[in-house]
Simulated assay, not measured.
Amino acid sequence: MKNPKQFYSLFILFSLLTLSCNHITKSIDETFHPNDSLVKKYNKENHFDTNGEYTGSTKTSTATAVQRHQERTIVINGDTVNTPEMELKAKEMFRDMELLKQKKNPSAAKEIQKRVNKFLKEMKLPQGDLKNTDADKPVAKAKKGILSASDLEKAEDQLKNLPQYRNKEIMVYQSVHFYDNGFINLMLQHPVNPKYVDAYEYRDGKWSAPKSVLASDITRRTFPLSGMHFKDAHKVIQLYNAKATQVEGAEPTSAAYITIWDKGMRWAPRTINGSRERYDIQFNNDGTLKSFRQE
């Protein structure tokens, strides 16, 4: 028997359906102890009398069969397994599994799997895994989301206190992005040469060193840092998601950003896309709702 699915399916099915030990023992007995009619049929077909003596004309090939029949053994993958021993170990296994289930521990499923594999190894049967159980399903990692309001305020204060901008007006160029991994990306007009722009990234509680970028229309695409507040990003996300729940098929957001044009700023996202409808949503500079309408 190269693939003993009968035994494996029996063990896994019983463990998942949480059957009682009595039912399990009964099923095992029925599996390993054929009823009298099957025994009589076997004896008749293989020329055994009621005492187990061979009644046919050929004895050389049946001696092993008689011995196996009397000792109640089976052969699996070329290995001889004693069925009373298998029955005893199976009962012990199901008893242990029942105790594990009674603990109601989240790790019980893995412990049960280990116990099943131990039995299969002892009986020289193929080992497998308990598939599709809740304990084995990969846990989906929730998105971290942007920094908390207090952390965003802290990041803003640190930006204002960068040595190169201390006691100077900070002009933000083009955009500010608040990502769902906690990072903040933005670009600032150079503190000395207004024709230049540098990029900065905030992560792990500190701002990076400046990196030069190629910029254009700097005058039209800058906005003072004093005119915005990073913590308002939380308001934008909360309001956006509240409106998204009203639109069939719309997805919530966990990130926000600011765009700058003509010396003005706008919060985004500015569109809520549903499966049937599309809405335009606008915010005031302080993150409060300005408008919400279907397009």
Score class of each variant (00 low, 15 high):
14 F>G: 00
19 L>K: 13
22 N>T: 14
26 K>V: 10
26 K>A: 13
38 L>E: 09
41 K>P: 04
49 D>V: 13
52 G>N: 13
54 Y>K: 08
61 S>N: 13
62 T>R: 07
63 A>G: 10
65 A>I: 15
71 E>H: 08
72 R>H: 08
72 R>C: 07
84 P>I: 09
86 M>C: 04
91 K>Q: 15
95 R>T: 15
95 R>L: 03
100 L>Y: 08
107 S>I: 05
109 A>C: 10
109 A>H: 05
109 A>V: 13
109 A>W: 02
113 Q>W: 06
115 R>P: 03
121 K>V: 05
127 Q>C: 06
131 K>R: 12
142 A>C: 06
145 G>T: 03
146 I>M: 15
149 A>C: 10
151 D>E: 15
152 L>V: 09
153 E>T: 13
163 P>I: 00
165 Y>Q: 04
173 Y>Q: 02
174 Q>P: 10
176 V>E: 00
179 Y>L: 15
179 Y>I: 12
186 L>C: 02
190 H>Y: 01
193 N>T: 08
199 A>Q: 10
200 Y>I: 04
205 G>R: 01
206 K>D: 03
208 S>C: 06
209 A>C: 00
211 K>D: 00
225 L>P: 03
230 F>Y: 11
232 D>N: 15
233 A>H: 01
233 A>L: 08
240 Y>W: 10
250 A>L: 01
252 P>Q: 04
259 T>V: 15
259 T>N: 05
265 M>V: 14
265 M>P: 02
272 I>V: 12
279 Y>C: 12
286 D>R: 11
291 S>M: 12
